[in-house]
Each structure stands twice: as structure tokens, then as C-alpha cells.
Amino acid sequence: MGAIRNVVEGVKLWARSSVKAIRKEGLSGLSESARLLYTHLLRFYGLIHNYGEPIYDAEWDVLIVLDACRADLIEEVVAEYNFINFDATNSLGSCSPEWMEKNFTSSYLDEMQQTAYITGNPYSETHLDPTEFELVDEVWRYAWDEELETIPPDPLTDRAIAVARDAQPDRLIVHYMQPHHPFVPSPLGEGMHPDTGERLEFSDLEDVWTRLQRGELSREEVWEGYRDNLEYVLESVETLINNIDGKVVITADHGNALGEYHMYGHPIYAPVWPLKRVPWCEYEATDSGSYTPDPTAWKHHATTDDEALSTEDKLAALGYI
């Protein structure tokens, strides 16, 4: 019922947005209105015809989740990394909340209670129950980088290695925020204010998917930034894999659409392959002991209580709200 309610609210939002667009842009606003209606109808279809593989139906000791990583994106860089044995699967979700809701259910409570979850995704606040897991470490709460407007990968790697060595959980999930936008090495979300000339941060501009849709960015520019962000996180993933034991799987919660099916980004309940087709790369890892996490390394990212961003601020910086 909650999913249907979300779609109904989405249709109401579409109606309000359509009226606003037509009032502002005249008949040219009809094109965007039609695209949004199409997206909502597709999402409604996705409620009825859902597909994907639950993560707990597979065998793994360590599940590395690269947020918003398409299968064909990681396939492009396979030759650069000896720990990526490329394969793919279908995700249960087309965005993070849906992925969490559908994987972490009462059917898998026994497995969840033996799982440590290290996460950089702020949706854990509303879509995970920490009491159902052996451990939930919401690294995004204390290692958020306000300058980057995201959480960098290294604090997650440090916590994952420490938890794996000290707590030795049966299963470990490490949920990195990259390659999800903002693209750290190639910040397409930065720019100059057209009137004042002042530098704009990621959250001051419309998200990269809106700019791609409007033609302000080319598909090639966005894809390159997307790939650079994947390579950025894989540097830290390599440190993790070299300092952990067990069967490791690299996957994603969902992908991104770059105009396929007239869609951009990753709307919820959208059953299209750019959003649902994700990596499933298996690797047998051995802890080399070559790296020792520094528990204070992330502290330079932290803020005081008065300065701390809210969860909503962080989700907005990531383009979710």
C-alpha cells in the first residue's frame, strides 16, 4: 500500500508541476508534462511487474555496494582492475529506498541479524532498522565532507576493515556513495552564477540529470564524470579488498538513466534496464594486513553540532530531494 500511495502522490505532484510548467512556459511546458506523466505511468507498471534478485539469495561474505553504478559502466573499466571479474544481475530496486525496502525484509531476518552494515547512504535513517542487524554503522552521520557535498569512500573503507577484523561478522555490507553524483573528480555540478559571477556549489545548481535533459551537458560529459567517479571509489575499494577475508561481491543498489526510455537519473519503481541492471563481480579476498585504519582519519570532515547538516540537507546535496 505504501508503494501505491507513493505513486499516487507522484501523480498529484505531476499535475501540480504540469500546471506550473504550462503557466510559466506556455505550450512548450506540455513536452515536460508528457515526459513526467510517462515516467509516473512506467513507475506504476513497475509496481505490478517487478523483477530482480534478492541479495541474500546469493552466497557472499562481503557485499560492496557502489551506489548508482550501472553494469555497463563498470564493464568499461574491468581491464584496469584485477579484482573485478565482471558479471551482472538485476537489482530489486531502481533507487536506494526501494532497494533497501525490498532486500531487508522479515524473510531474511536471520541473515540480517548476522550482518554488519557500514553505510554512506543517508536513507539508512528511514529505511533500515538497526535492531534487525548485528551492526549498523551510519558513517555518513560523522564523516560527511561539506566541501565535496557527499561522503568520500575512505572513511567507509576504514570502518569496514576495522569491523571485519574486530567484530568478525558472518556477513558484511559496505555501501559506498560513489559513483552516485556529485562526481568528485569531475564536478559537473559546479559553475559560475550567470549574474554575479560567484562560484556555485553542487547544491546551488539543478542536478546533473536535469542539466543533461535540458542539453546544458552532453551525454559524453556526464558519462565521463560518472566513470571518473567510479574509478575514484574503486581506489578505496581496492584497499578494502586487499585487507579483508572472504568471498567478496561488488554490486550496486541501482543504476542511472542517461536519456534511455526518456528517463534521467533513477526514479523509484522504474523497471528499465539502465536502472535495474547492476554489476555482480565475485572475488576471493585475503587480508594481507597491508593497511591499518586510522580511527581519527575522518575527523577533519566532521562539524560541530551547531554546524552539522541535517539528513535532509545531505539527501538534497546528493540530488534526492
Rank of each mutant, 00 (worst) to 15 (best):
E111M: 14
L42W: 03
M177K: 07
Y320Q: 11
W99S: 02
E80V: 10
F133P: 00
L27A: 15
A160H: 01
L27W: 11
F83S: 08
G10Q: 08
N82D: 15
I118W: 01
V139Q: 01
R5I: 14
R23V: 13
T131I: 11
E98S: 07
Y291P: 09
I74T: 04
Y142F: 14
A71D: 07
Q114P: 03
M192F: 10
W60T: 09
R16G: 10
L200D: 05
I151M: 09
E282M: 10
S31E: 14
C281S: 11
F44D: 01
G120N: 03
A21L: 14
V233R: 01
P293E: 00
T150E: 01
F104S: 06
D154W: 06
Y45K: 15
E201C: 12
N256Y: 07
G29V: 06
R159M: 13
S124D: 08
V65F: 04
L258M: 14
K102F: 00
G2P: 07
A270E: 10
I241N: 00
D87A: 15
D110I: 12
R219Y: 10
V222Q: 01
L230Q: 04
S310N: 06
D158I: 04
S91K: 00
A15H: 07
V62C: 03
L47N: 03
S106M: 12
E224W: 05
N50M: 10
E206S: 15
V222R: 00
Y176R: 07
E76V: 11
H254F: 05
V248T: 08
L212S: 06
D306G: 06
E282H: 04
I48C: 08
T303D: 08
D57G: 11
A21H: 04
G52W: 01
P169F: 00
H193Q: 07
D87I: 09
R171W: 02
W144V: 06
I74Q: 00
D61I: 02
C69K: 02
E146T: 15
E221I: 11
L318R: 03
